[in-house]
Amino acid sequence: MINLFYIAALVAIIATVLAITRHHAVHALLYLIVSLLAVALVFFTLGAPFVAALEVIIYAGAILVLFLFVMMMLNLGQDAKEQEREWQPLRIWIGPALLSCILLALIIHAIMGEGSASVVTEEVGPKAVGSLLFGPYMIAAELGAFLLMAGVVGASHLRRREFQSEITGKEES
């Protein structure tokens, strides 16, 4: 189990680095799906099978597929890839990477200073999560429903005017 964790962690890091450095958006999304599946495996080794399933179903299955559908609607071709290569010369990565490395070194220093405790991977199953979510966290679950509703209304409002103009344009012609 512990070897599984380290292999999944390595795959997650490599796939994430590849995902943010690709020039083609679809390649980046496919690498991101690999990264999310590896993180789901990490969740499984930590004894959280419910969250691992949600990561596969919702993150990799719904959110990333939404991204891919938008890519298809945007219809980016070869010239988008060329423009991306023009926008991202290698020297542009130096500053952000340096800042992130300093931040990472500080965080790792803080984490290692705490002393090591092991996660005893006893499973915390979906039953415990559900009774906690609809017990003490009931208000937060309802606020999450509000947030999703606001997201749906906001997204449809942003696209409304163009759909109306498309429909009226077709009726006129």
Partner: peptide, 22 residues
């Protein structure tokens, strides 16, 4: 059951976070 050190999981989370920040 085996035991994963909590430090290593948190370091993995920190690495992924800084890659995203970059």
């Amino acid at each position: 059951m085996s035991a994963v050190p909590i430090n290593h999981v948190l370091i993995l989370a920190a690495i992924l976070f800084s890659v995203g920040l970059t």
